[in-house]
């Protein structure tokens, strides 16, 4: 089983603070991490490989700093990593990103059976890249997977989350899935893994290497663009009270009455 896991480096939102004066995000000095959902994607890839044999290749597109995340992935025990980086990729939206990742997988991972993505990247929360790559490669996709029920070299059966419950879905391989946090508990890197990761050379792939159409990558290949950024208006009418002699309960009751809940 040849498995590809796509991971994205994102700012650690835990350390993102709001500047109370300007109401903007203070991001200087914010460390970067592997997108939390993608950690579960790597873990799931490793678990499937441990069961069925094969390889796990991790692919990430981003600036050269992404290398640190790829080393982290290596320390967890993945076989191979590919860093897709080029100034020409800058400004890519999900369509251009999907094209770039799709091209890379097509060219550098032969006989790929399964591609695993995180549910969404926490910086943009779009959840669009997984289906976009699956479309580029023309393979089936199943999103919001909470459990791989069954996997053989020919097919996969997954449990995926819906608004009103779950669905058990079967697909032939190759296929792509996007995974939720609850799918597994991620492992810690081993000492041996860390040593290996430290000395490994990271494969770097550029726009030329993947023979990318320059009109489909980076800013040029991105149909969507941010026209404005603003801070959301603060709610008016906020009422904060200190609970004394049951004043808290009284306030809640009258609010619930006002809202006609009780």
């Amino acid at each position: 089983m040849n498995i590809v896991v796509c991971i994205k480096q994102v700012p650690d939102t835990n350390d993102v603070k709001i500047d109370p004066q300007t109401n903007t995000l203070i991001r200087s000095g914010v460390p970067s991490i592997i997108n939390p959902f993608d950690e579960n994607a790597i873990e799931e890839g490793l678990r499937i490989k441990e069961k069925l044999g094969g390889t796990v290749t991790v692919v990430s597109m981003g600036p050269p700093q992404v290398e640190s995340c790829l080393r982290d992935a290596l320390s967890l025990g993945v076989d191979d990593v590919i860093l897709v980086t080029d100034r020409a990729f800058a400004g890519a939206d999900t369509l251009a990103t999907s094209y770039t990742l799709g091209k890379t997988i097509e060219k550098y991972v032969s006989n790929c059976d399964l591609i695993i993505f995180g549910k969404q990247a926490i910086d943009g929360d779009t959840a669009q890249v997984g289906p976009g790559v699956a479309e580029y490669l023309g393979i089936p996709q199943m999103i919001y997977v909470t459990k791989v029920e069954e996997i053989t070299p020919e097919k996969i059966v997954v449990k995926r989350e819906l608004e009103e419950g779950y669905e058990i879905v079967e697909s032939k391989l190759p296929a792509a899935i996007t995974v939720l946090k609850g799918i597994n508990t991620v492992r810690f890197p081993s000492l041996k893994g860390k040593m290996k990761a430290k000395s490994a050379t990271i494969k770097i792939v550029t726009a030329k290497d993947i023979e990318a159409d320059e009109n489909r990558i980076g800013l040029k290949g991105s149909p969507t663009w941010v026209s404005k950024i603003f801070t959301p208006p603060v709610k008016g009418n906020r009422q904060i009270i200190k609970d004394e002699d049951g004043s808290g309960v009284k306030a809640i009751i009258s609010k619930l009455k006002e809202l006609q809940v009780i």
């Binding site: 999907s98 289906p131 149909p223």
Partner: peptide, 23 residues
């Protein structure tokens, strides 16, 4: 922006090569 909408819309956007804004 449901489980179904967020599955079919990005697939369609990639197929017809147009932009999609999430959520």
């Amino acid at each position: 922006a449901t489980s179904e909408g967020r599955s079919v819309a990005p697939r369609l956007a990639a197929r017809v090569k147009t932009g999609l804004t999430a959520d």
